[in-house]
């Protein structure tokens, strides 16, 4: 177990170095941030530029800057915003809870829908409800999340006036964005719950359990579903990145003050330290979730013991 944990941790660190190196390198390609800071103002003198470069530390070679970024990252320092002059880490910290709340609520909502629907579809395979559930999954795969968001605003905020159309003012405003992401994620997860459960229900130990006279409900929930959840947990780990990608777009639809809007605003102001810091934090978040997912297998399947 410990060896597996260390290997898995090493792999995550490698992936994070790859991502941060890519992000830092790409952002450095954008040109001289010192020049960018003078945008719109009168043309800077060579001396002014040199002073700013020295202040920002961008006069040093790329690898030295990257090393400094990593060293800062370890201490929770993500640099200073070009625009506000404040620490990027405090901007990220103030936006992170909104993104986390939206991502986790959507995830829970999708599971609350996908597991029962998938179980129904698998138990009544070939029936009308199975077909309806399969159509739901296919539609969810084809719906643009931001359009679904706009349509939900149209129905529940503009026409029915039940919920606020956008912003961040209490639990009410979480409903529509979480529903947008949750419905779309649920559609694909349902498909997987169905097929995974169908696989497991064909296994010998399920037949054995049934032949011992164990009730169908108990076979389903205690024996089959637990095993069927393993590929689903993996899938959710893999989908978490996509979910956060969706969060970035949906935050924009609902004017949700999370990391996605922070990153998008940073682009329009060419505030590269903020952009770099936000993307890095999101990448770390995704890597951490995947690590937790991998380690949680042992809890679900007693056969896996990380030999």
């Amino acid at each position: 177990m410990l060896r597996y944990l260390l290997r898995r941790l090493f792999q995550s660190i490698f992936v994070l170095i790859g991502i941060t190196l890519f992000v830092s390198f790409t952002i450095r390609l954008s040109g001289d941030p010192a020049v960018a800071m003078f945008q719109g103002a009168s043309a800077p003198t060579a001396e002014q530029l040199a002073t700013i470069r020295k202040q920002l530390g961008t006069d040093r070679p790329f690898l030295v800057q990257y090393g400094a970024f990593l060293a800062g990252l370890v201490h929770g320092d993500l640099g200073t915003s070009f625009r506000s002059g404040q620490a990027v880490s405090s901007a990220v910290a103030s936006r992170f809870p909104a993104t986390l709340a939206l991502a986790l609520t959507s995830l829970l909502l999708s599971l609350a829908l996908a597991i029962p629907l998938g179980v129904i579809a698998a138990r009544r395979r070939g029936s009308g409800s199975d077909l309806a559930i399969r159509v739901f999954s296919l539609l969810g795969l084809s719906f643009p999340n931001f359009w679904l968001g706009i349509m939900l605003i149209l129905i529940f905020a503009v026409k029915l006036r039940w919920l606020p159309p956008s912003g961040y003012s209490g639990p009410d405003s979480l409903v529509l964005p979480a529903l947008t992401l949750g419905l779309i994620l649920a559609s694909t997860t349902t498909r997987l719950v169905r097929s995974s459960l169908l696989d497991v229900l064909g296994e010998q130990y399920v037949t054995t359990a049934r032949s011992k006279g164990i009730g169908e409900q108990r076979v389903l929930y205690r024996h089959a579903l637990r095993t069927a959840l393993i590929p689903i947990v993996t899938y959710i780990g893999l989908q978490f990145g996509a979910l956060l990608g969706g969060v970035v777009i949906v935050e924009q639809v609902f004017a949700w003050p999370g990391l996605g809007s922070l990153a998008l605003n940073a682009i329009s102001f060419r505030d590269y330290p903020t952009l770099q810091g936000t993307i890095t934090v999101l990448a770390i978040f995704i890597a951490a979730i995947n690590l937790v997912v991998d380690l949680s297998y042992a809890l679900l399947d007693p056969r896996i013991r990380y030999a």
Binding site: Q11, L238, V248, A283, I286
Partner: peptide, 22 residues
């Protein structure tokens, strides 16, 4: 295979935001 690991952990939207910003 290492590139594939990185790609799996880096959602496309974030990559696109980074590159298109530049």
């Amino acid at each position: 295979m290492r590139l594939a690991d990185i790609q799996l952990a880096f959602p496309f939207i974030l990559l696109a935001i980074t590159v298109i910003a530049v």
